[in-house]
Amino acid sequence: MPLIKFFPMIKEELRPNFMVIPAGTELWRVHKSTYRPGQFNPTLADIHFNGGRFEGTPLDPYHSLYVADSALTAVAESVLRSVPWTGEKRVIPYALVQGRSLSVLRTTCELTVVSLLKEKDLAAVRQNADLLDDERSYAKARRWASEIRAQAPDAMGLVWQSRRNRPEHAMVLFHDRFDDRHGRALDMLPERGIADLGSPEGVKEVNRLLDPLWAEVSEPVGW
């Protein structure tokens, strides 16, 4: 899938550092329950405003799949993004878990991703921590992800340190880099995860996971 660039971002050549995710690695994902556990999200972000930090755009229309290296990190990345830290125990709106599932995938082959874990990794792609931490510059982050993709055509995704559960890892995978591995790169692990995060049992389990981060999902009135 060709990348359409509307202006050159940099003149220098990027020198990304790569990380190999071994075959057999377990990856956790929170997703809409209507999606299959290994289904890439086809939603494209707006070029300038709405959308996730590293989602595809109409200018680079890849589908994305966000995963993490633990259940807690996957849940935290999903539900703590819009909940400010006030010093009190964070209360997460029930709507953020309603209609969602927590699934476990296992890699069946090695995945080569661009590392953004260390400062030297960010410098290698001519960036700093703002690429990961600045909530005001998602549009810039999406454009820079496209620049990395263009200059690292073998990269299957990006990996960085989770902002909500440091120092564990969060990752985004690019669907077009899996075309020759379709149906083989990611296997679902059945009877793992939480099928319905919005159920009474699901909320209880999510709150057990989130307790070390001093956060909990509110229960709907009438439960």
Rank of each mutant, 00 (worst) to 15 (best):
G99W: 13
P37C: 10
G157W: 10
N207K: 01
P42R: 06
V113A: 02
F6K: 02
D154E: 12
H169V: 11
S70D: 06
D60Y: 14
W223N: 08
A71S: 09
A123K: 06
T34S: 14
P153W: 10
L213K: 02
V75I: 15
H169C: 12
G51C: 04
L80T: 02
I194N: 04
V79E: 07
A215R: 01
A141N: 01
D134I: 03
A195V: 14
R163K: 08
Y66P: 03
N165M: 01
L116A: 04
P58L: 01
I4E: 09
P93C: 10
G38D: 13
R181Q: 10
D211Y: 10
V217N: 01
R192W: 11
S103N: 08
E13C: 08
G193P: 04
P22W: 15
P212V: 09
F54H: 07
S199L: 05
P22G: 09
L111A: 07
H175S: 15
A155V: 09
D180S: 10
D134L: 04
L102F: 12
D187P: 00
P22N: 11
L122N: 00
D134C: 06
A74M: 04
P8G: 03
R126F: 11
R164D: 04
P8T: 13
L3R: 01
F54L: 07
T25I: 04
T43W: 14
L122T: 01
L186F: 15
Q98A: 11
D211R: 12
N207S: 05
W144Q: 02
V83F: 10
Y94W: 13
F6A: 04
G157A: 08
A74L: 03
R166T: 11
L27H: 04
P212F: 10
P37W: 14
V221A: 14
V97G: 04
K120A: 15
G52Q: 12
I194W: 05
D134Q: 02
S78D: 06
N207R: 00
I10S: 12
L132Q: 03
A195C: 05
P16T: 13
P190E: 09
R53C: 03
L3H: 07
P22T: 13
S101L: 02
